Amino acid sequence: MTITGKALVAGVMGWPVGHSRSPRLHNYWLERYGIDGAYVPLPVRPEHLQAALRALPKMGFRGCNLTVPHKEAAMEIVDRLDTAARHIGAINTVVVEADGSLTGRNTDAPGFIANLQQSAPRLRLDGATAMVIGAGGAARGVIAGLIEAGVVEIKLSNRTQEKTAALARSFDPYVLPVRWECRADRLDDIDLLVNTTSLGMEGQPPLDLPLDGLPPKAVVTDVVYAPLETELLAKARARGNVTVDGLGMLLHQAVPGFQAWFGKTPEVTEELRRHVLGL
């Protein structure tokens, strides 16, 4: 598809940003729907974040995604925050409004839930119990999404007990802190297990979590998508649990931003998954 001088432009801002699959994802949709537009990588050092964000409307950008390490720092730079971003404490999407102002959004929660609904349709979240591993920004998004979907109790465990307790207080009374050394003992009555840490990612050690007490009905998911099947997911699948990889969350969380920038609500399909994976 030919890009003209009237092309709509957005991108992904991070440091580094070369690993991001978002350009491959959004440019697939632009081609798929015949939109005159482009989505580009924006490598921005942390000390240049404010200048880069404020330059977006001046350069004609419709907005951008934010990745590590900018998601929290950007909250102090944008002009307004949506409810989800304010609650979660991080931004992953910036929209340039018609007047040039910047709105910060967080689409991690709906992206996570949409991935579960598509990949594990038999899982009923209303009234369910979950365990979340990790207490960082990804955990906040996942927890917010689970609560909105009707999960009644979320057990939370992280290697740093202080972070676990602080995050549990933020989502009281839904979140119950679990000491790291007790994490495997608290799996016996859950419907969903979620790893939100980087453990299991390429170059990182695997998540050390015995699954002996996990109910056969429980769904296991991981926000990591490189590799597509982490050791946690492989162990869960081998014992018969339904597993959901993290790529779907990446795909679904991108939908609202694409719609805001390019005016089309895109579909998440199997063909899209294969394209993003380079298959």
Results as ranks from 00 to 15, higher is better:
residue 129 T to M: 07
residue 129 T to C: 12
residue 129 T to H: 08
residue 130 A to T: 01
residue 130 A to M: 01
residue 130 A to S: 01
residue 131 M to V: 03
residue 131 M to A: 09
residue 132 V to D: 15
residue 132 V to F: 10
residue 132 V to K: 02
residue 132 V to T: 13
residue 133 I to T: 11
residue 134 G to T: 06
residue 135 A to T: 13
residue 138 A to V: 01
residue 140 R to G: 04
residue 140 R to M: 00
residue 141 G to F: 02
residue 141 G to S: 03
residue 142 V to F: 03
residue 143 I to F: 05
residue 143 I to E: 01
residue 145 G to M: 10
residue 145 G to K: 05
residue 146 L to V: 04
residue 146 L to Q: 07
residue 147 I to G: 05
residue 150 G to T: 10
residue 150 G to V: 09
residue 152 V to A: 15
residue 152 V to W: 06
residue 152 V to D: 05
residue 154 I to L: 09
residue 155 K to H: 11
residue 156 L to S: 00
residue 156 L to I: 07
residue 157 S to I: 11
residue 157 S to Q: 06
residue 157 S to N: 03
residue 158 N to W: 06
residue 159 R to N: 13
residue 159 R to M: 12
residue 159 R to G: 12
residue 159 R to T: 13
residue 160 T to E: 03
residue 161 Q to S: 14
residue 161 Q to C: 11
residue 162 E to F: 02
residue 163 K to E: 05
residue 163 K to T: 04
residue 163 K to N: 15
residue 163 K to G: 06
residue 164 T to C: 11
residue 164 T to E: 09
residue 165 A to D: 15
residue 165 A to Y: 10
residue 166 A to H: 08
residue 166 A to R: 10
residue 167 L to R: 03
residue 167 L to Y: 05
residue 167 L to W: 06
residue 169 R to Y: 07
residue 171 F to A: 00
residue 172 D to K: 13
residue 172 D to L: 13
residue 173 P to S: 03
residue 173 P to W: 13
residue 174 Y to P: 04
residue 175 V to D: 10
residue 176 L to S: 09
residue 176 L to E: 11
residue 176 L to D: 07
residue 177 P to G: 11
residue 178 V to Q: 11
residue 178 V to L: 10
residue 178 V to D: 05
residue 178 V to W: 10
residue 178 V to P: 01
residue 179 R to K: 14
residue 180 W to C: 04
residue 181 E to N: 11
residue 181 E to Y: 00
residue 181 E to V: 12
residue 182 C to R: 15
residue 182 C to W: 09
residue 182 C to E: 15
residue 183 R to P: 10
residue 183 R to L: 03
residue 183 R to T: 00
residue 184 A to K: 07
residue 184 A to G: 06
residue 185 D to E: 14
residue 185 D to R: 08
residue 186 R to K: 15
residue 186 R to T: 11
residue 186 R to H: 15
residue 187 L to D: 02
residue 187 L to T: 04
residue 188 D to M: 12
residue 190 I to M: 13
residue 191 D to N: 07
residue 191 D to S: 07
residue 192 L to C: 06
residue 192 L to E: 01
residue 193 L to M: 01
residue 193 L to A: 01
residue 193 L to F: 00
residue 194 V to T: 06
residue 194 V to S: 08
residue 195 N to C: 04
residue 195 N to W: 09
residue 195 N to Q: 07
residue 196 T to G: 00
residue 196 T to R: 02
residue 197 T to A: 00
residue 197 T to S: 01
residue 197 T to H: 02
residue 198 S to H: 03
residue 198 S to E: 10
residue 198 S to F: 09
residue 200 G to A: 12
residue 201 M to Y: 07
residue 201 M to G: 09
residue 201 M to I: 03
residue 201 M to L: 02
residue 202 E to M: 12
residue 202 E to D: 14
residue 204 Q to S: 04
residue 204 Q to M: 13
residue 204 Q to Y: 08
residue 204 Q to H: 13
residue 205 P to I: 08
residue 205 P to R: 08
residue 205 P to A: 06
residue 207 L to F: 08
residue 208 D to K: 08
residue 209 L to V: 02
residue 209 L to C: 09
residue 210 P to R: 09
residue 210 P to T: 08
residue 212 D to A: 15
residue 213 G to I: 07
residue 213 G to H: 12
residue 213 G to N: 14
residue 214 L to F: 02
residue 214 L to W: 09
residue 214 L to Q: 06
residue 215 P to S: 04
residue 216 P to C: 09
residue 216 P to W: 04
residue 218 A to N: 12
residue 219 V to Y: 00
residue 219 V to K: 00
residue 220 V to F: 05
residue 221 T to E: 01
residue 221 T to W: 04
